[in-house]
């Protein structure tokens, strides 16, 4: 066998970790307004944390053990939908500020 056995799987694991890290940065940005004391912002932050937890639960195994036999396929749609959900929470926050 060639020398790159296992490397594609490792690259994929690392790509998952980078993605989850980016998602965490987005979550932290989203939590910032919750400290201003408005109830709406605290609720939005709570929902954002829930979304983040769901994505972590779905993607953690994939990030820890991506390999040919460990195709946790739900990780992909759930992570993408989680990212979209965080975006929409951000929209809700911006629109809530305008009115």
């Amino acid at each position: 066998m060639s020398a790159d056995v296992g490397l594609p799987a490792e690259r994929t694991r690392l790509a998952w970790r980078r993605t989850l890290l980016t998602l965490t940065v987005v979550l932290l940005l989203q939590l910032r307004p919750a400290f201003t004391g408005r109830v709406v912002d605290a609720v939005l932050a709570g929902v954002a944390i829930l979304v983040w937890l769901v994505v972590l639960a779905a993607a953690w195994r994939r990030a820890a053990g991506a390999g040919p036999r460990r195709l946790g396929r739900l990780s992909m749609p759930l992570t993408a939908l989680g990212a979209a959900a965080l975006a929409l929470l951000g929209v809700a926050h911006v629109l809530g500020r305008v009115h």
């Binding site: 993605t19 987005v26 990212a83 951000g90």
Partner: peptide, 22 residues
């Protein structure tokens, strides 16, 4: 796996846009 990494790269692009918006 390569297809999956391409997906993840796109997702990070999307997350970067979200972070920019926030």
């Amino acid at each position: 796996l390569a297809n999956e990494r391409t997906f993840l790269a796109w997702l990070r692009t999307g997350l970067a846009l979200v972070a920019g918006g926030l």
